[in-house]
Design a protein around this nucleic acid. Sequence first.
DNA 1: TGACGATATTACGATATACTCATAAACAAG
DNA 2: CTTGTTTATGAGTATATCGTAATATCGTCA
Lengths: 107, 107
Amino acid sequence: MGRALSPEQLGHIAERFKALSEPSRLEILQALRQGERSVTEILSETGLGQANASRHLQVLFGAGLVERRKEGPSTLYRLADPDVLKLCELMCGRLEREAAARKKLFA
Amino acid sequence: MGRALSPEQLGHIAERFKALSEPSRLEILQALRQGERSVTEILSETGLGQANASRHLQVLFGAGLVERRKEGPSTLYRLADPDVLKLCELMCGRLEREAAARKKLFA
DNA sequence: TGACGATATTACGATATACTCATAAACAAG
DNA sequence: CTTGTTTATGAGTATATCGTAATATCGTCA
């Protein structure tokens, strides 16, 4: 199960987590839960600036968290696989449990 | 299942992922897989500097990824729960699948 | 109390990251 | 070919983070 990870592997894993470590990028991933979206659609759904969103999308793509295809002049992005959301949900679950624990303290 | 997450929640989730986005901190978590460890033990297992490791441990603690208790003059750190490793393993699995896919391309 | 070991914190220089503005590149339509 | 639309990229600035050295804090023991 839990074999040791090499420093190089840890570097790669850290890189992927870093791609998930910005609210704007998580917001983009949330928008992509509904399905494939063009950059323009992502802009209107997230309120991000064009240049900014484009860079974030490059980061997500570089981290293998999203895939993309060109359709005419526009680029359509989609989640790379279901595990991307699973990661977010796992982390979200941790938060909820912490919140519940805090609540219990003051009950 | 997949309810929408508020911007505030996304910020908190991003914060947690950021704590996982540095190789040194992942290395610390790996060391803690074996069980509770003092800071000094972590230093020798990871090779990190004292001040550096202490700061990383504060980050991990602030993110709720590790817990700690004081025993005499030393502080003992441990993983907060098994989901911490589950997150790392999920991400690691993604990497392996990508590597396998790349390999297939050149086969 | 005084000295020592273990952690935490402060200060600082170096690097990296986000965001914005402006511009470039790719494509479609006329 | 020219214009308009869509996306990507370069440059600049502001902010954040890492790693380290020095110092402070806390607990233990003589």
